[in-house]
């Protein structure tokens, strides 16, 4: 089993794309943190009649947290891509035959893939958070703010960001098994997260009682996990795009883990039965 995991890890670290992916994670972290930093530190938002300075209306921890996790939406899309590709590449280049010849007990291969993907995603999460610290840190420093106002609280945020990336990667892995054409799998995954989910969420608001479901959708649960708007005036939160009823951070995290578990299970069952022609 540990041999299979080592083999899976070698797959990642012997192609350039994975290094490029980590670099992309870093840059996304830096750019979005800087952008969010600029917006929250210097921007103004209309609340009711008045224009208020965003940085005055948000508690310090929430503000810094918002800045450092500014790129999380883009980052978890990348994590989804990593997950899809870690399976899709095997089908695309037909290396899956060799993989199953070396590991004919396929459930072991899937477990090894899950384990190695977690490692790779943690590496990517570290790259992303480092990027965010650099990009967000520069903006905070120039505004004369503390970089780490609450180390414990931010530590929790970083851990949850890593968890979010891992979970979205595992969702991608399941998707990659479910749809063996990696282009189709990527399209479905990204289209669902960016288009279908918001649309369905919006549609649900028209049905009494059903709208509570929306907060369990993966993107909504992700936002909830980070408690991005805690302590923020509801009106302002809504103006910033984060309004509505949200799960608690642990409720969001558990919801995401449930998605990952279901997708992995689907992947496991399908892989065991699949003909590799």
């Amino acid at each position: 089993m540990s041999n299979l995991i080592r083999s899976e890890l070698r797959k990642y670290f012997t192609t350039r794309m994975w290094w490029g992916m980590a670099l992309a994670m870093f840059l996304v972290g830096a750019l979005f943190a800087a952008f969010t930093g600029y917006f929250t530190l210097y921007g103004e938002m209309p609340v009711g009649e008045a224009m208020i300075k965003v940085s005055d209306a948000i508690p310090e921890l929430t503000l810094v947290r918002m800045i450092y996790s500014g790129g999380i939406q883009f980052a978890y899309m990348l994590a989804l891509v990593i997950g899809v590709l870690s399976m899709g590449q095997e089908f695309r280049h037909k290396t899956i035959s060799n993989t199953f010849l070396a590991g004919p007990r396929r459930h072991q291969v899937i477990f090894a893939k899950v384990a190695s993907l977690v490692v790779v995603l943690v590496v990517n999460a570290v790259a992303h958070i480092l990027g965010a610290l650099v990009g967000g840190g520069i903006l905070l420093a120039t505004a004369g703010r503390s970089l780490l106002p609450d180390v414990g609280g931010l530590g929790q945020t970083f851990a949850l960001m890593a968890l979010i990336l891992v979970v979205w990667g595992l969702i991608g892995l399941g998707l990659g098994v479910l749809i063996s054409n990696q282009v189709a799998a990527l399209f479905v995954g990204i289209a669902f997260a960016l288009i279908v989910e918001p649309l369905v969420g919006f549609a649900l608001t028209f049905f009494e009682g059903w709208d509570v479901l929306a907060k369990f959708f993966p993107s909504q649960a992700t936002t909830a996990t980070l408690s991005l708007y805690s302590g923020v005036d509801p009106g302002l939160a809504e103006a910033m795009g984060g309004g509505g009823d949200q799960l608690t951070w642990w409720g969001g995290a558990l919801t995401l883990l449930a998605y990952a578990a279901v997708m992995t299970l689907i992947g496991l069952v399908l892989t065991r039965r699949k003909d590799i022609a």
Binding site: K11, M17, H93, K94, N98, L101, G103
Partner: peptide
Amino acid sequence: LEATNFHPGRSGRDHLRVLAATH
């Protein structure tokens, strides 16, 4: 099995190392 079973971005040696690791 087939002569096309390689990831084009991975070297032949690394391809073998990936398989070798499993055992």
